[in-house]
Nucleic acid binder design. Sequence first.
DNA 1: CGCGACGTTGATTTGCCTCAACGATTGTGG
DNA 2: CCACAATCGTTGAGGCAAATCAACGTCGCG
Lengths: 198, 198
Amino acid sequence: METSSPERIITYVEQFIKLSEQDKNAVTEKFKPIKVKKRQFIVQPGFVARNRYFVIRGALKGYVIGDDGQEHTIQLALEDWWISDYNSYIFQQPATMFVMALEDCTLLQIKYEDEQFLKNSSHRLETFFRIIAERAAAFMQRRIIINLTQSAEERYDSFMQRYPLMLQRIPQYAIASYLGMTTEFLSKIRNKKVKRKR
Amino acid sequence: METSSPERIITYVEQFIKLSEQDKNAVTEKFKPIKVKKRQFIVQPGFVARNRYFVIRGALKGYVIGDDGQEHTIQLALEDWWISDYNSYIFQQPATMFVMALEDCTLLQIKYEDEQFLKNSSHRLETFFRIIAERAAAFMQRRIIINLTQSAEERYDSFMQRYPLMLQRIPQYAIASYLGMTTEFLSKIRNKKVKRKR
DNA sequence: CGCGACGTTGATTTGCCTCAACGATTGTGG
DNA sequence: CCACAATCGTTGAGGCAAATCAACGTCGCG
């Protein structure tokens, strides 16, 4: 049996702030463990993303379908990452993204209203959510910079270096799409690297 | 004489949360008005961005210089926008960005430590900074989606629609770079539009 | 008035995409 | 437990959107 899920999020939160016993209880109460099976959707376009998810175990992707019908990966998530349609969740407006499990997953789910409650009832928890929002923004800004400044091969290199675990568990086509290139082109990049090493 | 700067930020903050008199005083005290002249830098690579800036009047751009020596616009700001090197400011690490005034500007400047103080001393102000961080993250995610899914011309169209004011005040080359294309290509897009209209 | 900053236009090149065909692996129902 | 389909990755030929390079026009300002 894996470490119990609520324990995991307490540990996670305590990386950033100190929690009173009361805070811990509130957090444990509001985050509900759920299981989702591979290929199952937890967010779909047109519906408001009422929940935010913290990954205890498993892998997921968030993607949009462009006008051309192409799939574009916006987010990837493994253990200890958050996932949802960020825009939809924050503003409680209809989603544009799909979020789908790439493996069988155990997640902790929190409802929008419950998150508001936690933030209102505890300054410390408000601080926690502020910190993760800041980190999300910083993360996305780095991604924007990479996308604007680097070639396809450089983007793949950065990704490999920073997220070696993802390479093992996320299908190539999802990574290619996350990096803003086609599966075919990523395949050619990898092939070129192999040849270069000999 | 323009509306006094501190008043402006109080109005801005009150769009999102209610402020006690004490909060108002604290905010007014910590945000310092400064003037910067066109072409002046307020953030430079290698130095920690110790401040975050709220634009009272003027226009600024944040950009990085890629390995190829090319300039890439990461952020643009007009009245009521925030600007800094987000990563550098949040983590208090050396910046990778330049932030430069495109016009003579009046800004409100807040020091990192003072912002921490405001957040610690008032739950309401903590909430405010949480909200703007969430909005920053949502904004950047939308930009990532646009960059991944749209062609150069579509990106320019979205930009025109959403930020018509920017077109008047930001030089074309900075907009082109913000949208991830060259000045020359943007010029050709605009030219094509003009022709199409006749 | 002259110089630097900004924008335009055309010719050429290129990084990446599209399309198509084909293995390898996985999973699934009979 | 096998057959067959679906999923995933690879490879190659050809095409296109956007970059690069180069030259030139214009405007504002020191």
